[in-house]
């Protein structure tokens, strides 16, 4: 036992390094595999049609050209109109921004009430809202169409905002409720004794605490609303289609040759905002999802 031929510690640390590199390798392979389509999309969008026809799918463009991007943005045809995705992109912005803001704000107020002002039936209401999260889109299509018709909002942008807000409230309420239940009830009690009203307490005490969960809600809702196709295609009319619907129309329009580079560029443009939101706020997203209670 006195003679140690090799150091077990050293050996195990070498093993650890090997394991680590193995892990990195596997992760790397997955990442490459996962990023492959994006790579193909970007390279294809930068090639000319000529090069696409003659060249290899995964090769880099011989000659970089932004023509396809320009066309996708303002010249590609969606059916009979040839204005590119631009007008529809703005439609999406007009739908997503108010949709995100309203559903987040309503979710915050709902969550605050359900978590901190436990009135009779609060749990039932919350359970029903939670249930709303699990209703498939398809189920609400017909009743929603009827309702939009009754409200005179069929085929309009406010109509689409309305639909997204309704559908999003379940999720945003869930986010905020779960965040607010971790906040001690004494906070509300102290503020009540201090003389603050229901809204004052929400505004001065709860909203400032909510940055991480607001970020979560905004990312979630933005992704949902921006990427939505079904509601967009069902409840829009000629001038109010969101970018996802326009993209579909561009890709599926059958006039002339298939312009893969324009399709790819249009798809990337359509996906860009959600990508951007993740890059900018992704850090907070993770933090917000895992955020524990706020002790104070």
């Amino acid at each position: 036992m006195t003679d140690v031929p090799y150091s077990p510690a050293r050996q195990s640390s070498a093993g650890k390094v090997a394991l680590r590199w193995g892990l990195y390798l596997i992760l790397g392979i997955f990442a490459v595999y996962y990023l492959m389509p994006l790579f193909v999309m970007i390279t294809t969008s930068l090639k000319s049609l000529e090069e696409i026809r003659t060249g290899d799918l995964v090769s880099l463009p011989r000659e970089v050209t932004f023509d396809a991007w320009a066309k996708a943005w303002s010249g590609a045809c969606t059916g009979i109109q040839c204005e590119g995705v631009r007008p529809y992109f703005w439609n999406s912005v007009l739908i997503a921004v108010p949709g995100v803001l309203i559903s987040t704000l309503l979710g915050a107020v709902n969550g605050y009430v359900v978590a901190q002002w436990r009135f009779k039936g609060a749990n039932v209401i919350f359970a029903l809202m939670l249930f709303g999260c699990f209703i498939p889109f398809q189920v609400v299509l017909l009743p929603m169409a009827r309702m939009l018709g009754l409200l005179g909002m069929a085929g309009t942008i406010p109509g689409l905002i309305f639909v997204h807000v309704i559908y999003g409230i379940g999720f945003t309420t869930l986010f905020f409720r779960n965040y607010y239940v971790t906040i001690p009830v004494e906070l509300v009690k102290a503020a009540k004794v201090d003389g603050a009203s229901f809204l004052r307490i929400f505004w001065s005490i709860f909203l400032p605490l909510s940055i991480p969960i607001i970020v979560v809600s905004v990312i979630w809702q933005f992704t949902q609303i921006w990427n939505d196709f079904l509601f967009g295609v069902s409840f829009s009319s000629a001038g109010t289609q969101p970018v996802t619907v326009a993209l579909n129309n561009i890709v599926n329009s059958t006039t002339g040759v298939k312009e893969y580079n324009v399709d790819m560029a249009a798809a990337i443009i359509a996906a860009l905002p959600t990508l951007l939101v993740y890059v900018v706020a992704g850090k907070y997203f993770i933090r917000g999802l895992t955020a524990g209670s706020v002790k104070g």
Partner: peptide, 15 residues
């Protein structure tokens, strides 16, 4: 017309 000190302090965390 009361003032109260809470056992858990209940200070407003962001102020």
């Amino acid at each position: 017309d009361i003032a109260m000190v809470f056992q858990s302090y209940a200070l407003y965390p962001t102020m």
